[in-house]
Amino acid sequence: MADKLNSSDIMTELFNIGVGQAANTLSDIIGKRIDLSIPNVSILNPEKGKHVLDQYLAQVAEGTVMVSSISFDQQLEGRVSLLFPADKMHQFIALCLHETWDEEAVTKEFTDIDYDTIREIGNIVINSMIGELSNAVSIPVKYTLPEIDVLDHACADHFVVFGDSQLVLIMYLDFDIEGTEIAGAIVINMALNSLEEILDQINKLYNGV
């Protein structure tokens, strides 16, 4: 198996491709240019992962996040959560829907329509990322449509299962749509042996790489 630095580089590249595709699809749908920052994947043990995630939640999301998440559980086992700070979501949704966003108007609550919009965005991002990963390693991954939730005072325990055989992959995802920056994060809680399987498969497929 590749060493730690290498595996994070490999996962970064794989997810990078997925995020690029997600941005492409979303940009096609909403007809707007999306600028991406360079995503970087950290592969952490649950304890460190929890610490890093709690920091993100406190600083960027100030506790309230909108989460889209899916679980997968066949050959690969894990859970993917796409996190966005809730306070930015009204603006983000308005941009996607070509609506004018009025800070004063309307409540802070999310409507069913907002939830459905986020479900679609979550579906696009997760489909692209997991789809790319699944293609790259030729391992089929099965999952359902994302569940959407708004969490107040979110903390890492919502997204991370602790256990010796668990790993946490964290990737920050910065979108910029017409000057509005959305600092999201993708958290993948994965069984250690799933990551090993991915890396083994990559070694096999790109032999000599």
């Binding site: 990078n16 491709i17 997925g18 690029g20 941005a23 492409n24 991406l36 790259a136």
Partner: peptide
């Protein structure tokens, strides 16, 4: 050779006079 395949990105890059644009992977 890029994963960012949004068509306006592609147009911008192609206007620079590149031989070809290949989508990752």
């Amino acid at each position: 050779l890029s994963a960012d395949v949004q068509h306006h990105v592609r147009e911008e890059v192609e206007s620079l006079g590149v031989l070809t644009f290949v989508n990752k992977p």
